[in-house]
Design a protein around this nucleic acid. Structure first.
Lengths: 362, 362
DNA sequence: GACTCCTTGCCAATTGCTTGCCAGTTGCCA
DNA sequence: TGGCAACTGGCAAGCAATTGGCAAGGAGTC
């Protein structure tokens, strides 16, 4: 028995023996002294409701209040592994589409007493992996928004801590995916009604699962309407990426074009306008997401609105639920998309309207 | 001497006695065994470069590599108090102006091996205080972007941990403030040259220090040019806030109006356009910041560009420097603003041009 | 070859909280 | 009123790092 470990008796360590810094924050030992109980009882009162009697708990709460006590999350995390933080990795912080996702997650986190840790991957799978690894050690769960990682890598990450992916479907991992069908169905029907017979799609990055999904959905609806659908080369999901797609779009014979997201749609529209095309008279343009600023353009952008805030909030909620192991099955709340018609879509230009023969001359 | 504390000899605790979970992450004890040294040597090799011989350090690094070791930040934080995270609180995550600030901070943090914790105050001083308190316990430093707290409260926060404020000046606290003079000087000179004789300013929230500064700067330059400058009622720094200022602006006789930020400028412009005014023919509008989307409008917004990315990055760098106590005096790197002239500014409307008498008839 | 000095590595205490195990207390029923 | 169970609360051993103090060993000097 070394006696040092017992020095100070029930009062615990710092009180008399080690007045470290006068400003050191109070510990459960200080509360224990003040409330006249054992530190372990304080610990239980604070983290295990019901484990101690109401009377004792009351005393402890008052003492904690008086000392202005705040748990030391590190000391708590050491034995338990539980921190009170959730990690969120987005592929591009400057993409307004993520603003609402971030805010949704942050709001939900705050509401549950959790804190958000944010990182961005700058559209790089490597950076994403680095950030994910670093975070995994310190968070209770991880949200990956539009990850660029492979399914395998994501699966491996999720074997350590709960992981939720947004806008991506990975076997065995909880996914939050907006239901794009509703929006796309309405959009294609609208275009068909406006006489469009050839539609193209400008996809985002190769590794974007969502970009692929959007194309499949568009293709399926176009087939249903008997509309020709073609896919252009992939671009970065940015305004510049959209600009770079302009040449290919002009060269094709589509009279309406979907872009992977609003950023690209805006870039494409502006580049085309700069080249003298009139939107929507010469070409109809549609984006996805309905980001901030998509209604600032002239014409304002028609787009398929994503439930971004809900995506972020649901991802966080489901992560917390996963921790509880309470409601594990509540995948997929309703997260529908919605067509938002503004000024960038209109009648197909003359000579290309629903006349099969023009297709041959393209 | 209790023998439990020595069980396992130099091998340390878990190896034989407590194979907790087979998947438990490696500790410095595991590395010590593999490298054939004492755990404390491992600790020093990992965190105190130079303290151990190069040869030993090499052995340890290899062992760490082999085990895919990652420090347990909680265990490290417990005795030292040092975490490797910086907190950032913004007043509104959905304001694009913060995107670049966040990204600047995040990039700088990553570069130094730090992680960013993000919170938003939703323009509320109370929420801001709550978030700040929660964060202070777990971060090495805190960045407050456009805080709504009082100087006192900020001062109190900074007595615990290093704090840096962005776009605000608080005595005794490191501040990162863009130098607005350059931009405002150019802007007012430009307006004067275009014949504007009365200018107004639509401020943001009462508690916004930056809003006040912008007004003072505008007022000073207007005085210098002999231009009448008036301030409207304060509004929320959002698109809607700008919209709400429209009536007052129309009622006044100013031919050019500065808004506290681009969001408000955009809102004001759109509301005015909806009411039939032509921009810039009937009224010139200027914003601040040059946010994403400010060039999407018709006409594109003229604005005073803020070095947002640099603001975020510098704030983080200076926080890290404050920890080092190395370079404490490097306040204020050059963070100049710059006038970006686009389409929302033009000649003052006829009848109001630089003629002193019209001022009396307003 | 002996002595001093310095480098290098080890021991053990420390950080604040959690928790398994155990003892003491209280309540209830027969 | 005795016995059993359910509660409460205390003890002490972790959790994974850091770090002051100290001993051992090697290098350099006379």
């Amino acid at each position: 028995m070394t006696d040092t470990s017992k020095a100070g008796g029930e009062a615990g360590r710092r009180t008399a023996a080690h007045p470290r810094t006068p400003k050191a924050p109070p510990t459960i030992y200080d509360i224990a002294v003040l409330a006249g109980v054992n530190p372990s009882t304080v610990s239980r009162a604070l983290s295990k409701p019901g484990r101690v009697s109401a009377k004792t708990a009351q005393k402890i709460m008052e003492a904690a209040e008086e000392l202005n006590y705040q748990v030391n999350v590190f000391a708590r995390a050491l034995p338990t592994g539980r921190t009170q933080t959730i990690g969120l990795i987005v592929s591009d912080i400057t993409n307004p589409a993520y603003f609402e996702v971030i805010r949704g997650a942050e709001t939900a986190a705050s509401a549950h007493g959790y804190t958000l840790m944010l990182a961005e991957s700058a559209e790089s799978a490597d950076l994403e992996m680095t950030a994910a690894r670093r975070m995994l050690a310190t968070v209770d769960g991880l949200i990956l928004a539009s990850p660029r990682l492979s399914d395998e890598e994501i699966g491996r990450l999720s074997s350590t801590k709960p992981v939720v992916v947004i806008n991506r479907s990975v076997a065995g991992v909880t996914s939050m995916v907006a239901d794009i069908e509703a929006g796309v169905t309405d959009a294609v029907r609208h275009l068909a009604a406006m006489g469009h017979a050839a539609i193209s799609y400008v996809p985002g990055p190769e590794r974007s699962w969502m970009s692929q999904r959007r194309w499949e959905s568009i293709k399926a609806r176009c087939d249903w309407h008997g509309i020709e659908a073609t896919m252009e080369a992939g671009q970065q999901p940015t305004v510049d990426g959209g600009r770079r797609a302009a040449a290919a779009v002009r060269a094709g014979r589509a009279t309406a074009v979907f872009c992977y997201n609003d950023l690209m749609a805006i870039g494409l529209m502006r580049e085309l306008q700069a080249a003298g095309l009139a939107i929507p008279e010469d070409l109809s343009i549609l984006g996805f997401d309905n980001i901030f600023g998509s209604d600032f353009t002239t014409p304002p952008l028609s787009t398929i609105k994503s439930p971004l805030h809900a995506l972020g909030a649901s991802a966080l909620e489901s992560l917390l639920a996963a921790g509880d192991r309470a409601a594990q099955l509540q995948d997929d709340p309703a997260l529908p998309t919605e067509l938002v018609l503004r000024g960038s879509t209109g009648q197909a230009r003359e000579g290309q309207k629903m006349s099969g023969n023009s297709l041959a001359t393209g």
